[in-house]
Design a protein around this nucleic acid. Structure first.
Lengths: 161, 161
DNA sequence: AATGAAATTTAAACCAT
DNA sequence: ATGGTTTAAATTTCATT
């Protein structure tokens, strides 16, 4: 193997228009067949497959099933803003990411150091989570809860860490 | 058709353990073949297909491609908390949901009336969005921006409205 | 890295229970 | 709503450029 190619593996340096086209199609329907996509875009099916695989392998694209939490019995969503002790923000993020109830954990600048979204079955569940697990996490100084009363738009992000 | 079955169509009244099992598998890999799932769960492939279709038709499950925004050139994420004029919270949600930059729009109780996540290409883009579109939306009184410095966990929710 | 064509596997439609 | 069967279609592998 040539030195220039070492460690490149399935990596994608930069997306081209075809990659973006494939992503756009799969964002609408993650199970569209490669042949369908090939017919729509005019590229050969094997090339479509090759590229989608490369995008998945390199971590740019993920094709997953997404269940509506409200339909599966988890209808208490809340956003929680957290103030941390200085120097603890990242470890707080890591600890909270490990909880099954969190669907969103980010380190932020501004009035909060960390923001997390949590999904609970009911208020009892939320109370236990907040008092016994969020507020007892080392480095958490203060929390502020914003209950989600209506979800108007929930789009997709995904695990970067 | 019997009267009891009218209007049931593809609706799912309540999920059983098999449904939950199928959702769990597809949440990890949205393109797993039905035959694979059938072999793993011990259910016939035709039943797996039937159930997954029903879950999709009834809006409980969605299988989509998710692109990492940071990989596709959108690396400025921010959470924006919004205070609204009394009575305007829902219309603000609707207006902001229509913007392509928003990936998350919820009506909340607590210190903010509305919270939105926005994804922008760069600061110039964010500045334009905030000053020209968010803050000019009718009913928006005050905004507070929390820039996302690190995304530790971004899981999946999806459009309920 | 991308494509084409072959062999293999899977999905879709159908039907019976 | 489930499970089996058949037919059509898609995926995978591999050789080629």
């Amino acid at each position: 193997m040539r030195p220039q190619q070492r460690n490149r593996g399935a990596a994608v340096n930069e997306l081209d228009d075809i990659d973006r086209q494939l992503i756009a199609i799969l964002q609408k329907d993650g199970r569209r067949s490669f042949k369908d996509i090939a017919d729509e875009t005019g590229h050969p099916a094997s090339s479509v497959r090759y590229r989608v695989q490369r995008l998945e392998d390199s971590g740019i694209l993920q094709i997953v099933g997404i269940a509506n939490p409200l339909s599966i019995g988890f209808d208490h969503l809340a956003m929680v803003g957290i103030h941390c002790e200085p120097g603890y923000a990242r470890s707080v993020c890591e600890a909270l990411s490990a909880l099954p109830e969190t669907s969103y954990v980010v380190l932020t600048s501004g009035g909060f150091d960390v923001m997390v979204e949590v999904i609970c079955r009911d208020m009892e569940h939320y109370k236990e989570l907040l008092l016994e697990r969020l507020q007892t996490t080392e480095g958490v100084r203060r929390t502020e809860t914003f209950f989600v009363l209506e979800a108007h738009k929930l789009a997709y992000g995904w695990g970067v860490g």
